[in-house]
């Protein structure tokens, strides 16, 4: 795996981390909670090297 590819996995993990953080901190809206979860789907699948 090239350095650039590794950087992309790190970037994906960073974004996933931020999304999880915001999900945990979200207080206002259940709508937003679901949306955070939906955004996590492609990020998790890529990090697990499924898709």
């Amino acid at each position: 795996m090239s350095l650039v590819t590794i950087a992309y996995y790190v970037l994906t993990a960073f974004l996933l981390g931020l999304v999880i953080w915001n999900f945990v901190r979200e207080k206002v809206s259940r709508d937003r909670l679901v949306l955070y979860l939906l955004v996590m789907v492609p990020l998790i699948l890529r990090l697990l090297r499924v898709k």
């Binding site: 999900f23 945990v24 259940r30 909670l33 679901v34 979860l37 996590m40 789907v41 998790i44 699948l45």
Partner: peptide
């Protein structure tokens, strides 16, 4: 509880 159930639903879907 809401967050935990939503997270469980996500895990199920994934």
């Amino acid at each position: 509880t809401v967050k935990a159930s939503l997270a469980a639903a996500l895990a199920g879907l994934v």
